[in-house]
Simulated assay, not measured.
Amino acid sequence: MNEADIRRIVAETVTETLTRIGIEADDPLEAQKDFQHLRSWRTSTETIKRQSLMTAIGIVTAGVLGLIWMAVKGQAQ
């Protein structure tokens, strides 16, 4: 088995593997676009999670501060 045979076998194996997992090996630009779309989707969901957490923390903090204010105001009267 020479180097050309090894290269051919590897190329066929890679092409078959990519095809089995749903990546069109003949059109790498489309695969790149798909991966870029997945990345932007992932970063969007991470941003939404982070913003939701910050909003929840803000609401809880405002509620606690409101309770403290009402307790202090109630004792002052």
Rank of each mutant, 00 (worst) to 15 (best):
M1W: 11
M1R: 04
N2T: 09
N2L: 03
N2M: 04
E3V: 12
A4N: 08
A4I: 11
A4R: 05
A4W: 01
A4M: 08
A4D: 10
A4V: 10
D5A: 12
I6S: 11
I6Q: 13
I6Y: 10
I6K: 08
R7V: 12
I9Y: 07
V10N: 07
A11D: 15
E12K: 09
E12H: 06
T13P: 00
T13K: 13
T15L: 03
T15I: 10
E16N: 10
T17C: 06
L18I: 01
L18F: 06
L18E: 08
L18C: 01
T19G: 07
T19R: 15
R20M: 05
R20H: 09
I21K: 02
I21V: 15
I21R: 07
I21H: 04
G22W: 06
I23Y: 12
I23L: 15
I23Q: 07
I23S: 05
E24C: 06
E24M: 09
E24V: 08
A25Q: 07
D26P: 02
D26T: 14
L29C: 04
E30Y: 04
E30Q: 07
K33R: 12
D34R: 14
D34S: 13
D34H: 10
F35P: 00
F35N: 06
Q36L: 07
H37S: 10
L38A: 12
R39G: 00
S40C: 04
S40R: 13
S40H: 08
R42Y: 10
R42S: 07
R42C: 02
T45C: 12
T45N: 06
T47F: 15
I48R: 07
K49L: 15
K49I: 13
Q51T: 11
S52H: 03
L53I: 13
M54T: 15
T55Y: 10
T55L: 11
T55G: 05
A56D: 14
A56E: 10
A56H: 11
I57H: 07
I57K: 13
G58F: 01
G58D: 07
G58T: 06
G58S: 08
I59E: 14
V60P: 01
T61V: 00
V64P: 03
L65P: 00
L65G: 00
G66L: 02
G66H: 01
L67V: 02
W69N: 01
W69Y: 09
M70F: 02
M70R: 02
A71V: 13
A71G: 06
A71K: 03
V72Y: 00
K73Q: 03
K73D: 06
G74W: 02
G74T: 08
Q75Y: 09
Q75H: 11
A76M: 09
A76F: 02
Q77S: 11
